[in-house]
C-alpha cells in the first residue's frame, strides 16, 4: 500500500513556545499512501508536530517539506500546502453559523472557485461517504458529536486533499460514537489516502497504521510498525505509556 516517494518530510524540526521547547529535532518522513499514527502522553508535542505540517504552528528550526513545498515564511507555499492537506480537529471546529452543506461548500467555493452546483455536488458526495446525507441542512449544533466529526472529515475531503491530518479526532466523543468516526477513517485509509493520525485508539492503529511514532517530551522516542511497537516496545517510556493506554 505505501508508495515510495515521501510526501511529508520533517527534518530536525524544533518548536519553542517562548522559553518552552515543545519539539526537539523531530525528524519524520511519510510516503504517499502511508498511514502514520502518532501517540504519546499528553503534552508530549503531538498536536504541535501535526500542526506544524500545515503551518498552524510555525516551526523555529529544521525543515518541513510537504508535497514538494517547503514551509517557509513564503505565503504561496503555505497556501499550496494547505490546499493539499486536510485537517480534522479534536473539537470538530465546524462553522456553527453555517448549515452542514454550507460548511462543506465554503472552501471549495472560495478556494477552488467552484460554482454553487459543483460545490453542492461534491459536498453531497462526501456527506454520503460519511453516511449522513440527510443532515445536510441542519446546523452543527443539531448533530451528535460523532455526526459532527464525520461532517468535519467530509468538509476536509471536499477539498480533495492528498494528505489528511487527524488530531485526536475521537477524544472529544462519547464512547458510543467513536466507532462511527473510526469506520469512516478506516474507509479512507483503505482508499489509499495518506494519513497522519494522532490517536490513542490502539485498535485502529493496529489495523490501519503502517507506522507508529511514539513521542514524549517533544521528541520522537520510537518509530516502528504497529506489530513491533505493540509487542516489543524499545524504550521504558513507551512501555509505560502502552501499559497505561491498554489498561483502559
Amino acid at each position: 500500500m505505501s508508495g515510495t516517494q515521501p510526501v511529508i518530510v520533517l527534518d530536525r524540526v524544533c518548536k519553542n513556545f517562548g522559553a518552552f521547547r515543545a519539539l526537539t529535532n523531530v525528524s519524520l518522513s511519510v510516503s504517499k499512501g502511508e498511514k502514520l499514527v502518532v501517540c504519546g502522553p499528553s503534552g508530549s508535542g503531538k498536536s504541535t508536530m501535526i500542526r506544524c505540517i500545515n503551518r498552524l504552528e510555525e516551526h523555529d528550526g529544521g525543515r518541513i517539506i510537504v508535497n514538494g513545498h517547503e514551509l517557509t515564511k513564503d505565503s504561496r507555499n503555505i497556501d499550496a500546502v494547505r490546499r493539499e492537506v486536510g485537517m480534522v480537529f479534536q473539537n470538530f471546529n465546524l462553522f456553527p453559523h453555517l448549515t452542514v452543506i454550507k460548511n462543506l461548500m465554503l472552501a471549495p467555493r472560495l478556494v477552488r472557485h467552484k460554482n454553487k452546483d459543483e460545490a453542492r455536488a461534491v459536498a453531497m458526495k462526501y456527506l454520503e461517504r460519511v453516511r449522513i446525507p440527510n443532515q445536510a441542512d441542519k446546523y452543527p449544533s443539531q448533530l451528535s458529536g460523532g455526526q459532527q466529526q464525520r461532517v468535519a472529515i467530509a468538509r476536509a475531503l471536499c477539498m480533495n486533499p492528498e494528505i489528511m491530518l487527524f488530531d485526536e479526532p475521537t477524544s472529544a466523543l462519547d464512547p458510543e460514537m467513536i466507532a462511527e468516526v473510526l469506520d469512516v477513517m478506516t474507509d479512507l485509509a483503505r482508499e489509499g489516502m495518506t494519513m497522519v493520525c494522532v490517536t490513542h485508539e490502539m485498535g485502529f492503529a493496529r489495523s490501519v497504521a503502517d507506522k507508529i511514532v511514539f513521542m514524549d517530551a517533544g521528541e520522537i522516542v520510537e518509530a516502528a510498525t504497529p506489530e513491533a511497537f505493540f509487542t516489543k516496545p524499545q524504550t521504558e517510556r513507551a512501555r509505560q505509556f502502552l501499559s497505561q493506554i491498554l489498561a483502559h
Binding site: 494547505r82 492537506v85 485537517m87 480537529f89 473539537n91 462553522f95 465554503l106 478556494v111 476536509a156
Partner: peptide
C-alpha cells in the same frame, strides 16, 4: 473560537 479560524486556515481560506 480560535479553532474556527484554524479550521479556516486548514481549509486554505
Amino acid at each position: 473560537d480560535k479553532g474556527l479560524t484554524e479550521a479556516g486556515k486548514a481549509l486554505g481560506l
